[in-house]
Amino acid sequence: MAHDIKVSVKNMVCPRCIMTVERILDSLSIPYNKVELGEIFMPQVLSDETSDKLKHELQKTGFELIESRVHKIVSDVKLAIAEYLENTTDRKMNLSAFINNRLAYDYSYLSDLFSNIESKSIEQYFIELRIEKVKELIVYDQLSFTEIAFRTGFSSVHHLSAQFRKVTGLTPSHFKNIRSVKRKPLDGI
């Protein structure tokens, strides 16, 4: 079991808890090697979607997944990035300084950690998040491209258009006209 992935579960206190967790894993078709009090040993890391389903089912029975410290930090970075995008007044400082103000870690550590877990840099994630926000605002059809550029922190409509095309392969105008490119859910970025 040296190669197993260990997932910690809070509130498991008896053999019935083990059986309940095993039933949940079986019902979700999640492979596991062993369940012990407070721990599940799995042959592989769960996808975010499967992990979310497992969390939901465990919570129904009073159990709770204990997220690893690393995944919690990455989640906190994502929340800080989303906050930065939504809060136009804090854009006087750059993204790395904003994240440093929100989290008690050195930015280079956070950047390396984020890249290792997400397989993309913080900056790439931020660009993708911004483009999804732009898509949302285009679909709402209430703002001009200039207003959208300002609201999402682009220096100009030209900069917005260049980034949008780089990520989606379309211009914002073309996206607005066809609207066939589906938006991604934020947890899918």
Rank of each mutant, 00 (worst) to 15 (best):
K176L: 02
L58Y: 03
E83V: 07
D112M: 01
N11W: 01
L137A: 11
I81Q: 07
R183W: 04
D4I: 01
T89F: 11
Q124K: 14
N33K: 05
E49L: 04
P31K: 09
T50P: 03
E49D: 11
L37Q: 02
S161Q: 10
E49N: 05
I148R: 10
H174V: 15
L79T: 06
S8I: 09
S155C: 08
H56T: 13
N177E: 15
I138S: 02
T146G: 06
Y140H: 13
R91K: 12
K135N: 12
E147K: 07
F154C: 07
R91W: 14
R183G: 13
R165A: 08
I30P: 06
V7A: 01
V77F: 00
V134G: 12
S75D: 00
S51V: 01
R23D: 03
R91M: 15
V167K: 03
P31W: 03
D26I: 04
E132Y: 06
S121A: 14
L113W: 01
S111E: 03
S161D: 11
V35R: 01
D141L: 04
N177Q: 15
E83K: 05
K184F: 07
D187P: 04
S156P: 15
K55Q: 15
V134T: 13
R23G: 07
K60S: 04
P172N: 15
I117W: 01
N116L: 03
S173W: 06
K78W: 00
Y109H: 07
T168S: 14
I99G: 02
P15Q: 13
S144F: 00
V13F: 12
E39M: 00
F114V: 00
K10H: 10
K166T: 05
L46M: 15
Q44F: 08
D141R: 08
I189L: 07
S108A: 09
L25E: 03
E57Q: 05
S108P: 09
S108Q: 12
R130G: 03
E118M: 15
T50E: 14
S75I: 01
V45T: 01
I178K: 14
Q44I: 12
A104E: 09
V139S: 14
D48G: 12
F114A: 00
F150E: 15
F164D: 06
